[in-house]
């Protein structure tokens, strides 16, 4: 009986302790970055051109936004269309569908450095785009494709069949039903997936160093080399000279991530998934 009590007590302490540790680590990381970075947020950090004097993060910020938009512009249509095919057109249990699922699963498990390597070999070298915004965006668009596909598929699945049948009953064709009835109802779920994808793009480094390069500039064309905020931070940490500015950059990155998480949680909550 005493043994029983001890077991309960020890395991209780361990489980609560582990959860507290997880929360504590997060609080510590965020607190530490804010504490070190916030005092160094100053106007010169958002100057429009970068030099080693001002260590401006503005080119990085603009590059990150462009990189995100371009990657999404490539990946979202493909992901949404693929999800439409898988949910509305494909025959159940077809060999092709299982192959698509298998490859999508494989893609979601590939680490970003492998994407970076592939991007270097294919987009940068084979297609001859050089280190560029375009090569980076194409590389990232493959990386986020499984995420977009999965969230979109789930969203389309959760649209009740009654809506489809209603549309068919009113004489709408299959395409019209999908575009006008199914997709609009699935939109919040698709958005949640897109926001998660933005999070991955913003935080990405390894896949970009050898595809988009590391030049800190506001890109003049899709073929200019750019340096996103994450890559910018990595470059700064390697130089070891601008520690304060790195912390400030980390604060900006963290804020973006927190905003993205809050937004996606809001959307998910509003559609009542899980």
């Amino acid at each position: 009986m005493k043994n029983q009590k001890n077991f309960e007590r020890i395991m209780g302490i361990l489980t609560w302790g582990a959860a507290a540790l997880t929360l504590g680590v997060l609080a510590f990381i965020i607190g530490f970055i804010l504490f070190k970075g916030v005092p160094h947020l100053k106007p010169s950090l958002i100057a429009f051109s970068y030099n080693s004097e001002n260590v401006s993060l503005m080119p990085g910020l603009i590059s990150t936004i462009l990189m995100t938009l371009l990657s999404l512009a490539i990946s979202v249509p493909v992901g949404v269309f693929a999800a439409i095919y898988l949910t509305e057109y494909a025959k159940r249990g077809s060999k092709l569908v299982s192959l698509v699922r298998l490859t999508t699963e494989t893609l979601s498990g590939i680490p970003s450095i492998i994407y970076g390597l592939f991007g270097l070999l294919f987009f940068v070298t084979y297609l001859g785009w050089g280190f560029s915004l375009l090569a980076g965006a194409f590389t990232l668009s493959i990386m986020i494709l499984p995420l977009i596909m999965r969230s979109c598929e789930e969203a389309i699945h959760s649209v009740p069949d009654v809506l489809r049948e209603g549309a068919f009953g009113l004489g709408a064709g299959k395409l019209r039903t999908i575009l006008k009835i199914v997709l609009p109802s699935a939109l919040p779920g698709i958005f949640a997936g897109i926001i998660l994808a933005i999070g991955r793009i913003v935080g990405e480094t390894a896949a970009l160093i050898y595809t988009a390069g590391t030049v800190a500039q506001i890109p003049k064309s899709p073929l200019s080399s750019v340096r996103t905020l994450s890559v910018h931070m990595y470059a700064l940490s390697g130089e070891g000279l601008h520690t304060n500015e790195s912390y400030a950059t980390a604060v900006v990155l963290l804020l973006v991530v927190v905003a993205i998480n809050t937004l996606s949680a809001k959307i998910v909550k509003s559609i009542g998934v899980k």
């Binding site: 990381i29 530490f32 935080g203 480094t205 931070m233």
Partner: peptide, 25 residues
């Protein structure tokens, strides 16, 4: 309601920020 978003946030922190934290702490 608090711990779930916290875990999600832990997943969202970019690797470079983790690396930076590692260097400093």
């Amino acid at each position: 309601k608090w711990i779930k978003p916290a875990v999600d946030l832990l997943a969202g922190i970019p690797s470079v920020v983790y690396g930076f934290f590692g260097i400093a702490i």
